[in-house]
Computed example of a mutant assay.
Amino acid sequence: MTARENGDDDGRAMGQELSLRVILFHEAVAAHLGLNATEHKVLSLIAREPGISPGQLVDRTGLSNPAITKIVHRLAELGHVDRRRDGSDGRRYALHVAEGHRRDLARLFAPMAEAMNGLVDGMDDVERAAVTRWLTGTIEILRRSTAELTRERESAAGRE
């Protein structure tokens, strides 16, 4: 018998609560930086992949070229992102997070990172393995679900 058949929706409820708290935390960080949530997440992608191009951001996010152009322009204008010309193709440019932004993020995330480290340090190996399995599975489910929703939206847009 599955957890759902037993009427146990704890996993679903915890997933929903985790999602809500992650979104609200990132909304607060974004607001602190003068950004909206989408701009903040695009900035996170740039931080994870220094040198990423705007075209790659379009691919990673599913946002349109004009939307990415607008976001990148705003991030650069606010001093969060540096645009550097591509050495092999002067028409293209690579995006990098500005050093000042890295310092701001480190300061904003430090209290949470310290608390999370304390939480993990208080777990034994079996608990860590269970949490890792749940989070890894959740991330993969979210990745697949996002891809499916994106495909459905693009398919519906193509029929219009």
Rank of each mutant, 00 (worst) to 15 (best):
T2I: 03
V29N: 04
E5T: 09
P111S: 07
H101N: 14
D89H: 02
S88Q: 13
E127A: 14
A13E: 15
V126D: 15
D59F: 06
G137W: 05
A3M: 13
A28Q: 10
V58Q: 13
A67P: 01
R128V: 10
R133E: 15
E148F: 08
I68V: 10
L78T: 08
A13R: 12
A30N: 07
N117D: 15
R91H: 09
K41V: 11
F109L: 14
I46D: 11
Y93P: 01
R85W: 00
V58F: 03
T146E: 15
D89M: 02
R107Y: 00
A3V: 08
L135P: 00
D10H: 07
G118S: 09
E152L: 13
P66F: 08
I71M: 03
R84H: 06
D9M: 14
L63H: 02
L35P: 03
D86K: 00
R133F: 10
I71V: 10
V97M: 15
L142F: 08
T136S: 13
A28G: 10
G137E: 14
T132P: 00
V97F: 05
E127I: 00
G11N: 09
D59A: 12
R153H: 03
A147E: 15
V58N: 06
I71T: 02
A13G: 04
V120R: 03
D8A: 09
E140N: 08
D124C: 07
T136A: 14
L24E: 15
D8M: 09
G79P: 04
R48S: 13
R83N: 08
L108K: 00
H101W: 12
K41Q: 12
L63T: 00
E114V: 10
A106T: 11
I52W: 01
T38A: 13
E148P: 00
Q16Y: 11
G55N: 12
A47S: 13
I23H: 12
R151S: 05
M112K: 08
G62V: 05
F109G: 00
L75M: 05
G137Y: 10
L20S: 12
R151I: 05
W134I: 07
Q56N: 02
V72N: 02
H96L: 13
H40D: 14
R84S: 07
L20Y: 13
R103T: 05
T146Q: 12
Q16W: 11
E127K: 03
H73Y: 12
D8I: 10
V81F: 01
E39M: 06
A156D: 14
L24W: 07
E49P: 00
V42R: 02
V120F: 14
R4E: 15
